[in-house]
Write a protein that binds this DNA or RNA. Structure first.
Length: 418
RNA sequence: GUGGGUGUAGCUCAGUGGUAGAGCACUGGAUUGUGGCUCCGGACGUCGCGGGUUCAAUUCCCGUCAUUCACCCCA
């Protein structure tokens, strides 16, 4: 029989690796709570039109990466390729702008894009992100970037580069686009095949092409920051000044352009420089999308958001010591004491400790070995102890042994765990 | 999607045209109430899968799948 396996580009996350995921997600939720963001949990499947309208028809995601299928009711559905569109849909659907002026949501979950898998790039991948509706910035823009950098630092990811840019608002973008196409057209036959195709579909994307010939041409291209209108310029200046005041390092990258069409004004990307990351080093991307809510049929509502790739974050995070699966491992001196061991475990767990035991009836030695691997403390249950109603608690790191009554054990264990 | 590399034990990897090895991990013991270190023993592989060449293929060839690197894209 053919072996069943995961779909290409989709991975099982199992213990002990899943423990690192939990730590990461817990840290993210803590940060979000501190900043007043509440969790939004939209469905993974959405109407295809949502993504086409918000992300943009000419983007790679919509053109060739979505998992789109027709369900039995003949509706076109799509596995979400990102989180911003779903949040915007929910924000509109539940008329949230009518109940509060400013809304702060975060989300964590899997996203789906049918790309060629590589290290740090999978077809099902996890993102943690946030959206903030109703505040035009620039202060929340800077605050969001600073929040992400602080979060990364807490995870031990310090070696990062924060790139910021402004795409201006609608009119700015249109004027710049015109100037850019005018500049690029004479070079059309020198551009890479990809960029030639993009020249009219999505010319901004030519700017961050990695092809050497494109980069050379992009060097001389007009600078979007010089096309910003007065209000856009003031907005961007204040984002930068606030970041500077916060002491958050960043570089202005006028050629930073992201692959989703909905961005306006503030745009940012955070790249890691850790060796594990390889070419997929974009840890976080985000920006302002003041036009999206209106385009989806709502009232004009400014918004800004970001998303981080959790697989990449995990690659960038430093290795951490394995602290052991449980607090205490309980050992039976002889197989006939296993019933007693189960009882001891039950009582310790009731006090809130995490406890495990090897109940297969193996030798004391083999149980000790497992204890050593799985917990900092071991409890040895022998005939003598049962008779006297006590427990022997052994600290496996310094070999010291302590005696406690069954009732007094949890307190002593907590003390030993520090 | 394009081009290249790599698939041998759970992991990291040697190796050979005559059907396989190391280290780590796992496991039993040395030690009749105690783990880690050391020593002795044990289990573990359809050599990714399919086809071809050959008396014989894990080894050579082709295909395929997986993975990885670059491009691409992006988180």
């Amino acid at each position: 029989m053919k072996k069943l396996r995961t779909v290409k580009g989709m991975n099982d996350i199992l213990p002990p690796e899943s423990a690192r995921w939990h730590r990461l997600e817990r840290a993210f939720r803590t940060t979000m709570r501190r900043h007043g963001f509440g969790e939004a949990r939209p469905p993974i499947v959405e109407p295809t039109a949502l993504f086409v309208r918000s992300i943009g028809e000419a983007t790679d995601i919509v053109e060739k990466e979505m998992y789109t299928f027709t369900d039995r009711g003949e509706k076109s559905l799509t596995l979400r390729p990102e989180g911003t569109a779903s949040c915007a849909r929910a924000y509109l659907q539940h008329n949230v702008q009518a109940i509060e002026p400013v809304t702060k949501w975060f989300y964590v979950g899997p996203m789906y894009r049918r790309e060629r898998p590589a290290k740090g790039r999978y077809r099902q991948f996890y993102q943690a992100g946030a959206e903030l509706y109703g505040d035009p910035g620039p202060y929340v823009d800077a605050e969001m970037i600073d929040m992400i950098v602080s979060f990364l630092r807490e995870l031990g990811v310090e070696d990062v580069e924060v790139m910021v840019n402004s795409l201006g608002s609608g009119e700015t973008r249109a004027r710049f686009r015109e100037a850019l196409v005018a500049y690029l057209e004479p070079f059309a036959d020198q551009l890479s095949a990809d960029s030639q195709r993009r020249l009219h579909v999505n010319p901004l994307r030519v700017l961050d092409s990695k092809a050497p010939q494109d980069q050379e041409i992009a060097e001389g291209a007009p600078n979007i920051l010089e096309y910003l209108g007065d209000e856009d310029r003031e907005h961007f200046d204040e984002v930068r000044a606030t970041l500077t005041a916060l002491g958050t390092p960043f570089v202005v990258s006028p050629r930073l352009v992201r692959g989703l069409d909905y961005y306006t004004r503030t745009l940012f990307e955070i790249r890691g420089r850790g060796g594990e990351l390889g070419a997929q080093n974009a840890l976080c991307g985000g920006g302002r999308y003041d036009g999206m809510i209106e385009e989806l049929g709502g009232k004009k509502t400014p918004a800004i958001g970001f998303a981080m790739g959790l697989e990449r974050l995990l690659l960038a995070m430093p290795e951490e010591e394995d602290a052991g699966r449980v607090d205490v491992f309980v050992i039976a001196r002889s197989p006939s004491l296993r019933r007693e061991v189960v009882s001891v475990c039950r009582d310790l767990r009731a006090s809130g400790l995490s406890v495990d035991a090897d109940l297969r009836g193996g030798s004391l030695k083999s149980q000790m070995r497992r204890a050593n691997k799985n917990a900092p403390l071991a409890i040895i249950v022998g005939e003598d102890e049962v008779e006297r109603g006590v427990l022997q608690i052994k600290n496996l790191s310094d070999s010291s042994q302590h005696e406690a009554t069954r009732a007094g054990a949890p307190a002593l264990i907590r003390e030993l765990l520090g």
